[in-house]
Design a protein around this nucleic acid. Sequence first.
DNA 1: AATGAACGTTGCACAGAATGCAACGGATGC
DNA 2: GCATCCGTTGCATTCTGTGCAACGTTCATT
Lengths: 253, 253
Amino acid sequence: MSQTVDRALSILPLLAEGPADLGQVADRLGVHKSTALRLLRTLHEHGLVYRQSDQRYRLGARLIALAQEAMENLDIREIAHPHLVKLNEQCGHTVHLAVYEEDEVLYIDKVESRYPVRMYSRIGKPVAITVAAVAKLLLADLPEPERRALADKLDYPVYTTRSTADAPAFLRELDKVREQGWATDLGGHEESINCVAAPIRGAEGRVVAAMSVSAPNVVVTADELLTLLPLVRRTADAISGEYSGRTSPKGTV
Amino acid sequence: MSQTVDRALSILPLLAEGPADLGQVADRLGVHKSTALRLLRTLHEHGLVYRQSDQRYRLGARLIALAQEAMENLDIREIAHPHLVKLNEQCGHTVHLAVYEEDEVLYIDKVESRYPVRMYSRIGKPVAITVAAVAKLLLADLPEPERRALADKLDYPVYTTRSTADAPAFLRELDKVREQGWATDLGGHEESINCVAAPIRGAEGRVVAAMSVSAPNVVVTADELLTLLPLVRRTADAISGEYSGRTSPKGTV
DNA sequence: AATGAACGTTGCACAGAATGCAACGGATGC
DNA sequence: GCATCCGTTGCATTCTGTGCAACGTTCATT
């Protein structure tokens, strides 16, 4: 809507790919160098862009700090965290918390596995939306037209032979997930990693977040992981209760 | 330099404080509502701002994802990480990696303590710059005029009785740190937490990052923590060597 | 040492884009 | 049913962002 701002913001994802010099930025924006310079300067003043010693630009520190604040302000995260820790203490595996926002699912909290073999993931990283158990739960709860539109829009990368193949298969999977109230990812993202996930619901019953337990095959089999399902669902329900204001943390006050 | 972009970017820190509606944003920017609306729409299109169900705006998911990419692109982080993990395995305490950028010091990596009593901190959070051991190392290496200017500009919050009091005291501490080549924070930020830190240097000998080991008093005393200094310095030197290209990782290739 | 290319930077005239206004519409509350 | 509040839209004005051309550096080449 605003050309100048639009151009300026387009620089950010561009720099996220790696450092770039003025000319490269100007070229990729399709504007004159002097224009790119002024935009970069403005971004720089706000700390979103940093100029490294070789004169090239890269994303700046304030961006990281801002994102940090953004996450810490998510109240679901605040409420869920102690529950995630407790669950991790009980089962020992990696625990994730994820939310959906504008066609993306992303992890907003994580408690690391206590086993030496760990799964790679990072808070803030967008989730493999077509296969992750938490993504299925979050998308399954979308209104039907929106869900269908999104499913059509998505790519379906073949991470493994068990990855979701296409939109129809995905929509079928979502229906199943919505009905049963929980989801799994059995080697759909990485051959040797399985996840079980459960939804966290707000006051009106809408799914506001999802949590999962993940573990590699070498630690527990898929069947063993599934035995944790009741525990995961209980934890998710406890968070739901607290988030929607029905119960207070650990019976406090 | 660019008014429109400047205004748009000013919205981000504003929203970082918490969600706000259109009127609030317009007021705090000192612009007309319609102007604020257009700026917010542009930010929204880029995913930096999200409109929650109550119509208010808050920071968006893409911001978090961008920050994530920004961090993963820092090659010092890439190189240092395995060393941090190894150090953590050896001593069990929390290990931090931090960099300096434009008047701020921030953690860019962290390996959690294996002890139950942990120190609070988060990757991406700006560090208490006047007391943290890593901050001292990074600032001590700045060119003298810049260092002095920054010291004058800073606030000196009294976290504890051992916090750095003012600019002169800070500059003296920095001189000491530069001379000895390592730094500590003994209860300067939180009464019961101590840190030992060592610098990581690039090819030209400049300090490009700093790492620290932190532990609360209840786990180890300050004196015990100090016995880890040689180990911390050796780790930092190993990272320095690899970063500046003098040595290859674990003798590979 | 001298030449030339590549890149970042500056000042300026012009045009186009951003601005504030006023009016509209929908929701909420009295 | 009326009044208020808030977000939204279209439009005329003008201020701001734009591209151009020229300059200054740095670096590589001959």
